[in-house]
Amino acid sequence: MNISRRDFVLGASASACLISSGSGMLGSAFAQSAWAPTRDVELVIPFAAGGGSDLLARVVGKIIVEEKLIPQPLVLNNRPGGGGAVGLGYVAASRRKDPNTIILINGTTQITPILNPSARTLTEIQPIMNFMLDDFLLFVRGDSKYKTAQEMIDDIKSKPTKTFNFSTGGTTDVMAITVFSRALGKDINPVNFNSGGESLTALLGGHVDGTIGNPLEFMGQLASGKVRALGVFRDTRFSAMPDVPTMKEIGLSVPNFQMWRGIAVPKDVDPAAQAYWEGIMQKVAASPTMKKYIADNVATEAPIVGADFVAFLAAQEKLYRELLAKPA
């Protein structure tokens, strides 16, 4: 590696830098399986640079390089487009047997082919490991008349159907609202925005009555009281928000609804390489950097490996299809 090149960019390229720090660090992860990467490893990110899943991929990449988990350089490759469909299609079509390719996958990559039959499904790749689950919370504006979820639920139940406007920041939020309104037995009127940020902005501006969304964007607002969290759609409370009850504590029987994020390899990779990547990814999940990342995102750690992950995804697929009213 030459110094002048690195100085110039100061990392105008992450991957260039990852290459330089990764090369030459041979050894370390060999012992556990017969296979090891034979050339540069390509981490495909099926989303544009800068989003939540892109950040996760970059954290994974950083851990792999810094803890010298693989004996070859790692190159990040963003293949954005079509809710993950382009990146998935790239791996499924032109990297089908290549054990030196790994790809980031998440709930969106599972939902896209349900809505758009032309997109490739997760059956065309081999899931390796899930890292985390993104949670959903019920939010209202800070000055809302609803102090508790119970007050809001009572009001929703007493008014005609679809009276309440909730902002959403994407298909997953719409699905969460569907889960919620089924439990209530009353339809909520979803106003769809393009991102969690826009959904939050609409709530802050008082253009909608409430929202269900991932806590990440809302944490700063919660601290200042601009936004109030009324309920959690998972079994346990968050340590960051000990006062916010779960829906089950309120007495509403809502099934858990969470979005997963993990890693996969191409479909026809041989078992030795799959086992190798399962080992590496478990080390990544155990790293303090990953734990800190998940905690910062107010998400749930959920290491699910190999066959368990495949089974988990099949169950999710069924749930999503049912929520989107698109039976297989």
């Binding site: 090149r5 110039f8 960019v9 105008a12 390229s13 991957s15 260039a16 190159v75 490759n77």
Partner: peptide, 11 residues
């Protein structure tokens, strides 16, 4: 090649 592929790491 220098700018895009080498410095910006465009694949």
């Amino acid at each position: 090649a220098l700018i895009f592929v080498h410095w910006l790491a465009v694949p």
